[in-house]
Write a protein that binds this DNA or RNA. Structure first.
Lengths: 344, 344
DNA sequence: CAGAAGAGCTAAATCGATTTAGGCTCAAGT
DNA sequence: ACTTGAGCCTAAATCGATTTAGCTCTTCTG
């Protein structure tokens, strides 16, 4: 395997290698050699060369040439991190697809895809800066490092950021300062005296805000500080581990705000393992408008924005940006609501 | 909004509209008019025209022109249906990304994205047939209609199909005929006399096989037929509803094989709502190597292939196909294993 | 007033693949 | 001997955007 000097293999290179025209190579690659009557021997030589040289088609070139010039094609993407739960993203995608299906016309088509980056390393995403991949994107689940990168950059296409405020970007997010407060109020109104918040080590802006507003509200309403329990990541396992330690250190803990549903699942496990009950011994409030929260045992009381509404706002904004009907960055806030179930 | 005769707006059209060269328009679009010293008035006229005409850049053209000719770019996709749970897909994506990160070199980059289709309507996916979107794809969660479409077609790029056998495609799937049998054996060995299987209305091939092999094994081992409980879809809610009816009609039901984890979650709910216990009154076996199954209450015993192994096989196959080291379709079977937990 | 400097813009090549129209050879038919 | 046709292949245009090299005109300098 030679490296370095070997540029990507093109149709032209194959043609030269075989001593034939690019047209013939293209014909074979498209499997149209029969109708175009290429000699079987030639076809074989071309195929051989294709294999030997390790040809990989350039999809951009193919698309450019192949597309119907009557149809305009819009490429939309949802960018999220590998580390984030895909669940919300899939709802966003579904909703985006719905909007897009409505707008699809004979002369107007859309492609929607999900792309993922490693949390905190959005800047390394290939093609992010080049405007050569998307007509518009939704960016979600960024960490502060990603936010800093975005703020320092201007992406040359339509962007809507979900779940955080960023200078110069259009953003859709939960009204800040409210979610955590609602959770705190619920727990305290339920007579809990030792409320704690369970958070992952890496916080997105919205998650951090939830934790902050929770702690602020607890302090304001009780004069004491809420415990902050830090889990290694978002998984139930790390949530369970973190809560287990906490319950040992602080046995009087009687109320919990878990900032993701996966952490809440782990928390349930730890609470039950410690032979306590939800909500009898420990009340739990989760986050979001989770489609499975009803099936937690007990069903999980949640605080969060109605997700469909968030997505609808995002999609509307994105299309306005792409059509340039809106030029300046806009912030849209969706207030969190409480879905009262059995856990608090 | 005129329709029909209006072809997509190109840079050239804007240039003609303004009475200037395409180069100038391109300069403005790239926001490089300062360094290239375009007159502010001209810039404004161009911007105006861009807005008026509703210009949408052609990303394929941009990419073709913009890319570094030293670097070969491979586009990989994971195709799955909107209706399927995204959870497994996200693991596949993560694993694919890992492989891809390893293979990334200065002269070799990859893009990986998830694309979704409506279950049963894969054929409507734009760009599927044209070879102008992907260098290689993994197709997952297809329904019989999609399978039929695929069998009748030859996609002009590397394809690996997950979870079903299709003529002329390379496939990776759970060893057929085994998973359901294991589930049946476990339930029967646990002394269950009235085992049932809970399935969604729309069955993928693997899911259907699990249900079949379960029923076959029950019949073989007991001489009686297992009950088939059909849920409207994959959601916990529909699983709960279906099982509720079943428990009313068939109160002696004491063992359940739920073919997806979401259905199992719904099943737990219905069983508890009927004031029965898992596994005391009803033992439950789920499917897969689910990262959250440990945190179900009680933890869910599962039958299924080790998912990481499945993904590893898929990725290996895909790369072999793309490099043309393997030309003929191959089938890879991954045997299901049992993860024994508390529910059965 | 010649020449330089700069402002403002354009022509044309280019990215990689596809496809249309047509060219050349040789054999068969008249 | 001349046409016809089949077989096999090529030249060149094309998709839409970007960029380099360079052109023209004005203004300023010495």
């Amino acid at each position: 395997m030679a490296r370095g000097e070997n540029r990507p293999v093109t149709v032209r290179m194959i043609a030269e290698h075989v001593g034939i025209s690019p047209a013939a190579v293209s014909t074979v690659l498209a499997n149209r050699h029969e109708e175009r009557r290429l000699a079987p021997a030639t076809v074989e030589r071309i195929r051989q060369a294709v294999r030997e040289l390790g040809y990989v088609p350039n999809v951009a070139a193919r698309r450019l040439r192949a597309h119907d010039p009557e149809v305009r094609h819009m490429e939309l993407g949802i960018l999220t991190s590998f580390e984030a739960p895909l669940f919300l993203v899939s709802r966003a995608l579904r909703e985006l697809q719905r909007s897009v299906d409505q707008r699809t016309a004979p002369d107007r088509r859309f492609s929607v895809s999900i792309d993922m980056f490693h949390a905190g390393r959005l800047r390394e995403m290939p093609g992010l800066l080049s405007a050569s991949r998307y007509n518009g994107v939704i960016i979600s689940n960024t960490l502060p490092a990603d936010d800093a990168f975005l703020t320092a950059t201007t992406l040359p296409y339509a962007v809507v950021v979900q779940g955080r405020r960023l200078a110069n970007y259009s953003c859709v997010l939960e009204t800040p300062g409210v979610g955590g407060r609602r959770a705190a109020e619920m727990l305290l109104a339920g007579g809990r005296r030792q409320p704690a918040v369970l958070i992952p080590a890496l916080l997105t802006q919205t998650t951090a805000d939830r934790a902050e507003s929770f702690c602020a509200a607890v302090r304001e309403l009780t004069g004491r500080d809420a415990a902050r329990i830090s889990a290694a990541d978002f998984t139930p396992a790390s949530g369970a581990a973190a809560l287990r330690s906490h319950l040992e250190a602080e046995p009087r803990c009687d109320g919990l705000f878990a900032v993701t549903d996966t952490l809440a699942l782990g928390a349930y496990h730890a609470i039950k393992a410690a032979r306590r009950t939800v909500p009898g011994d420990v009340a739990v409030v989760g986050v979001g408008d989770h489609e499975h929260a009803d099936f937690f045992d007990p069903p999980l009381t949640c605080v969060g924005p109605v997700y469909d509404q968030v997505v609808a706002e995002i999609v509307a904004l994105l299309f306005n940006l792409m059509s340039r009907r809106r030029v300046h960055p806009t912030e849209v806030f969706v207030p969190p609501t409480v879905a009262r179930r059995a856990s608090a």
